[in-house]
Design a protein around this nucleic acid. Sequence first.
DNA 1: GTGAAAGCGCTAACAT
DNA 2: ATGTTAGCGCTTTCAC
Lengths: 341, 341
Amino acid sequence: MKQTKRLNLVEIARLAGTSKSTVSRVLQDQPRVSPKTRARVKEVIKKYNYEPSMFARGMTGAQTGLIAVLARWMESGFFADVIRGIDDAVKKKGGFLLCSFAEEHEEYVRLWRTLTGRGQADGVIMIAPSMDLFKEPFNPYDKPVVLCASRVPEDAAEGWDAVSAVTTDNVGAMRTLVTALADAGYRDMVHIAGLPDNVDAQQRKSGFLSAVVSHPGVQGCVIDGACTSEQGYGLMNDYLDAHTGLPDIFVCFNDSVAFGALRALRERGRRVPEEVGITGWDDEVVANDISLTTVHMPVAELGKASAEALFDSVERKSGAASGKVTMIETPICVRSTTRPL
Amino acid sequence: MKQTKRLNLVEIARLAGTSKSTVSRVLQDQPRVSPKTRARVKEVIKKYNYEPSMFARGMTGAQTGLIAVLARWMESGFFADVIRGIDDAVKKKGGFLLCSFAEEHEEYVRLWRTLTGRGQADGVIMIAPSMDLFKEPFNPYDKPVVLCASRVPEDAAEGWDAVSAVTTDNVGAMRTLVTALADAGYRDMVHIAGLPDNVDAQQRKSGFLSAVVSHPGVQGCVIDGACTSEQGYGLMNDYLDAHTGLPDIFVCFNDSVAFGALRALRERGRRVPEEVGITGWDDEVVANDISLTTVHMPVAELGKASAEALFDSVERKSGAASGKVTMIETPICVRSTTRPL
DNA sequence: GTGAAAGCGCTAACAT
DNA sequence: ATGTTAGCGCTTTCAC
């Protein structure tokens, strides 16, 4: 019952009657191997269930198959869904996921360096990083990075323009939403926006404002500062305390805010959607339970596309990443907190 | 702008005026180093921000700092919270998280082997594994495993008795809940249970049944088969179609089921908690928004305790893991879908 | 208490 | 097309 020694390259080579270089070549699908030998080696590998050591690989500076995922803490299962999408893509390549979380900027950057240094990941997927990140220079010799649910801002430090991103079009989606609402007869709109340091929040807000302007007859105003349902609940109560009337609709930054706001509305006896409409953003699982009209974020798809973009960058060793931005569509889910749109 | 070569042991040794063996000893906090030398080495390490290569470490068979997390797919952010707790604990040790997901048993076992083989993790945390897992033999030379939100069943295959677990007491918590409900005057209870192949579901169900029996004057029945909110919604509609009256309370397997059931109740004009009470289980973030009375699962704590238990097993290299079972408390959160408890 | 030296399992020149 | 060899950066005997 003692630990059987791990199978290694040399052993495989011996079993296949060849040398370890040849086996190594087969492993990497390199060209200069005769079809016959290749077949023989592959057979042995399969037969003995051999898997090359990630560590030995890493030592030589070759690809390790390790993909790092760096995230900030977020409630609402967003992370879980992204990671699932990433896992799907990474698994197909036989790689591993190295996950880490950081709250503060310093810690975030430190982890980034460590993950691609000590924990030699082939590349990093950064999930919705803080905008502070882009003050950090991105060196040409840094391991590939893909931004997920984010993109490089105009004023980023040097080097970031080569970094790819997979994200959604907040501005466009918000304009689409406002247009749909306007078409459905909603005129007086209040946007409960997100926090000032949140990029998505700013984009949705600017989308909201520009859309309102471009729809004659529609008027809108913005309330700042909600991200959690508790905040949504508080802001809605503040609003109801300060105003006698109601707008036609509350367009919330995200589902959580909408949940909280909705709870406040219902507690104060306001009927939704009869008296007032409300919309969220994200389409969390419970949005369906609550029957909230919202904008669907295809989160797993974001993750999957990010991983694919990363493989793209990793494979073109030739340096120069693409700096490509992939946009994922975000359809509107019409439910019963609004009239049919 | 060229790639600066990574700092290594030899370089640190040179800078500290000693040999690499000594540096290695310092790194591992080994005893046979003079305090003076140790201090000097530590200083250099700190000054140059040196971090030893995980790969070189792995090559020698030493600990790698890699902790594997193996999960099945679960909705509702459960995974995200556990992983966060695990990350907290692992980060303190300077380790990394290797995350993987598997749906099917075969795949699960394959990943387990790969993670501790090719991707030489020091140990594995298995989140709520399928019970099929325990049919697989656990070999004495396997890397340490800790079960999170699960525990070794009676009829497990050989070797599993040495495996530690961190979990909650479903049976006890359900008995506590039923007792509290009974004390609050609820008499006629219906338990909307989970799926038959779900261990938690079975435990909660058996807790429910045994508690009902031990409370004279209380009667209860069980409806099987809900896990998602959609299923809760469907089952509740079925129930309302089949019965003219209502029980005093619906005790649901989890929050999702409760959300769905609640939605159905409200759509049919039933008032909660005036006409009927309803409880969930998990205390998801939105449970608060919906103001659902539920049992709080301290998910991040489960993760944290699991990681700590794993370190415990990893460190006692002496073979024999403890087989210790850590129970995490699950308090009841009383909100407004029941009367005060 | 310290250092020298032998690997760990692979990749990547460099022969042939 | 295939084999030989020199490392990669660490841990770990084994001498001193």
